[in-house]
Design a protein around this nucleic acid. Sequence first.
DNA 1: CATCGTTATGCTTTTTGGGGAATAACGGCC
DNA 2: GGCCGTTATTCCCCAAAAAGCATAACGATG
Lengths: 121, 121
Amino acid sequence: MGKKVRGGRLPGFRLRGRIWIEGPDGTFLGYGRVVLLERIRDYGSISAAARSMSMSYRHAWRLVESMNRQGRYPVVEKRTGGRGGGGAVLTETGRHAIASFWKAYHEFREYMLERSAHLDL
Amino acid sequence: MGKKVRGGRLPGFRLRGRIWIEGPDGTFLGYGRVVLLERIRDYGSISAAARSMSMSYRHAWRLVESMNRQGRYPVVEKRTGGRGGGGAVLTETGRHAIASFWKAYHEFREYMLERSAHLDL
DNA sequence: CATCGTTATGCTTTTTGGGGAATAACGGCC
DNA sequence: GGCCGTTATTCCCCAAAAAGCATAACGATG
């Protein structure tokens, strides 16, 4: 009655995955980008956001550029100069993008959790 | 009655994703690895399989090593020397791994297709 | 009008993943 | 026993991605 000779489940193995939103020019939104957007929202500047997640400013800036360029509307509005040197704030589009991504993301986590259960190896 | 000012859907954008099976030492099975296993099954050798997908033998060999080392049982049995120089064949574990992955993979495709439909951006 | 921290951008260095070539060992088969 | 194509492994090189460094430019505020 043992179905197969193979020793059964491999304990340490699990199904993993990731999702992202792709635009005309490659990735538009992914986990890292969304976290970056949230930090920008919380800290009010790209550089502070980058520092807070130990990412280089240059990299963070490029990510924001990529997101802003792809959509019809920018996700981040940037101001140079002025009090405190300037800063950056989320647009309504940006806030909406974050919400959309998290929604898809959490549904996906749910799915993966459920699906991992009947993974037979 | 327009719900929001934002101009509506961004036409070119779509939800994408990928899945893989992770073992104690990183990736155990992914799309590329499974295709490689199938080629090994079809051609009877790692080098022919690698050639058929224009992958370097070195890379293919490493992937096989990674898979073989992680599981309780190897997925590929390799023979050096002999008629035709040797070769490689799938084990029962290997065949089962392929089937398991494709099952999860196709279910996942289904899910993504369905989920992409109500992605609002 | 000098200050200050931020955006903006170019240049150089480091890291990383993989390809290519070279070589040894192997072992049925003629 | 020599041949042959495969497994097994090492060393060097290349390209792409990201980090690090170094400056400009900016503009509200004191």
